[in-house]
Amino acid sequence: MLDHPLATIENLRVEFQTKDGPVVGVEDVSFEIRPGETVCIVGESGSGKSVSSLSLMRLIEYGGGDIAGGRLLFKRGNGDEIDLAKTDQSLMRTIRGNEIGMIFQEPMTALNPVFTVGRQLTEGLRMHKGLNKAEAEARALDLLKQVRIPEPERRLT
């Protein structure tokens, strides 16, 4: 059914452990994302926008957060619905980049200046799509052309 949500966040609670005990990052956050929808999370600085988004991707744990409550239901490409809050990180690595992705808020932190743009664009293609180096480079070039990046061949290097 096309109207079925791809992702349902229900009563999300995220905590961060401090020396003084747990601090709540978000509490009772709920929303749905349906096919074809663009969902924007708006709020003041510190209101929990990034914490909520990073939780859905299960990246919050790498920033010291813990999903302390709620459900993160995700409908996979095969039709199965799973709770990402309970999914082990090895499966999450498969899901991230293959089935869900995120465009982060700060464009200046999106690419690492130590590595070429080409290396950074092809890494995910090779890891998640099983492309070899030449195939990944060709796909990255095609993607840069699609979004009209000037001089895409030069940008890759």
Rank of each mutant, 00 (worst) to 15 (best):
S50M: 05
E106I: 02
T109K: 13
S30P: 14
I103P: 01
D88L: 03
N78R: 10
M108Q: 11
Q105R: 05
M108A: 10
F16V: 08
L84V: 01
N11M: 14
Q105D: 08
Q17V: 09
E81K: 00
N112R: 02
S90L: 14
E106K: 02
D83W: 00
E44Y: 07
S55T: 02
V42Q: 06
R76M: 07
S30F: 14
D66P: 04
G21V: 00
Q17R: 13
M92Y: 05
L73H: 08
I9E: 08
E99R: 10
S53E: 02
E10K: 12
G64S: 02
K86N: 11
P35Q: 08
E15R: 07
T109C: 10
N11H: 15
S45C: 07
N112I: 01
F74Q: 03
A68V: 08
V26K: 05
V24Y: 00
I9Y: 10
R58N: 06
E32T: 07
A85W: 07
S52G: 13
M57A: 08
S45L: 06
Q105I: 06
R76A: 03
D88H: 09
R58P: 01
G21Q: 00
L72G: 05
E27R: 10
D28P: 07
G63T: 05
M102C: 15
R13L: 03
A110R: 11
G77A: 14
I95S: 04
F31E: 13
L72C: 08
S90T: 15
P107G: 11
E15W: 03
I95D: 01
V26C: 11
T94D: 12
I100T: 06
C40K: 13
M57P: 09
T8N: 07
R71Q: 13
S47G: 08
M57E: 09
R93T: 14
N112K: 01
V24D: 00
S30M: 13
C40G: 15
T87L: 11
A85N: 05
N78C: 13
S53N: 01
G77T: 07
I60Y: 00
Q89A: 02
S90R: 15
L56M: 14
F74M: 05
N112P: 01
P22N: 03
K86A: 09
E15M: 11
G65K: 04
F16I: 04
I95F: 01
A110T: 13
G97P: 06
I9Q: 08
S52D: 10
D80F: 06
G69S: 11
G79Y: 10
T18I: 06
G97F: 06
S53T: 04
I100F: 03
L91T: 05
T87V: 15
K75Y: 02
M57T: 11
V23D: 00
I82Y: 03
N98F: 06
N98M: 13
G65W: 03
L111Y: 04
D80I: 05
L56K: 06
M108F: 12
P22V: 00
L73S: 07
D66E: 15
